[in-house]
Amino acid sequence: MKVIFLKDVKGKGKKGEIKNVADGYARNFLFKQGLAIEATPANLKELE
């Protein structure tokens, strides 16, 4: 799953980066902790 990092995550990505991560990792950790959001077309447009 592609995500947009909202904060730096050690060993995974830095704020503003778009990366592929495991679905479970994204849903169970990154999204719940507010560290990333899903890289949907709408979210990508907001990032620009």
Rank of each mutant, 00 (worst) to 15 (best):
A26R: 02
G11D: 08
L30R: 02
K7N: 07
R27A: 08
K15M: 10
K12R: 10
M1Y: 08
E17F: 02
V9D: 01
I4M: 08
F5G: 00
I18Y: 03
Q33F: 15
V9N: 02
N20S: 14
I4Y: 09
F29V: 15
I4R: 04
A42Y: 07
V21S: 02
K32T: 12
K32E: 11
N28F: 11
V3I: 09
G34I: 03
L44R: 07
F5L: 07
A26Q: 07
D23P: 15
I18V: 13
A39N: 03
A22W: 10
V3N: 00
E38Q: 10
V3A: 02
G24S: 15
G13V: 06
F29Y: 14
K10W: 15
N20K: 14
G24H: 13
I18P: 00
K32M: 11
N43S: 09
L47H: 11
K12T: 11
R27M: 12
A39F: 11
G13D: 01
V9M: 04
G11N: 10
G16K: 02
V3P: 00
L30N: 00
K15N: 03
R27H: 10
L6M: 07
V9T: 03
L44W: 06
K14Q: 11
F29T: 09
K7M: 11
D8E: 07
V21M: 09
A22M: 10
A42D: 12
I37G: 01
K15H: 05
A39W: 12
K14W: 08
E46L: 14
D8K: 04
L47Y: 15
E38L: 10
A42M: 10
G13A: 11
K2G: 06
E48H: 12
A36H: 00
R27S: 08
K14V: 09
G16R: 02
F31W: 02
V21D: 01
K19P: 00
Q33E: 12
P41L: 12
E38A: 11
A36I: 08
E38I: 07
A26H: 04
N20D: 13
A22K: 12
M1H: 04
E46V: 12
G16E: 01
L47A: 07
E48M: 15
Y25H: 08
T40P: 05
K45A: 14
G11L: 04
I4G: 00
K14E: 06
G16I: 00
K12D: 06
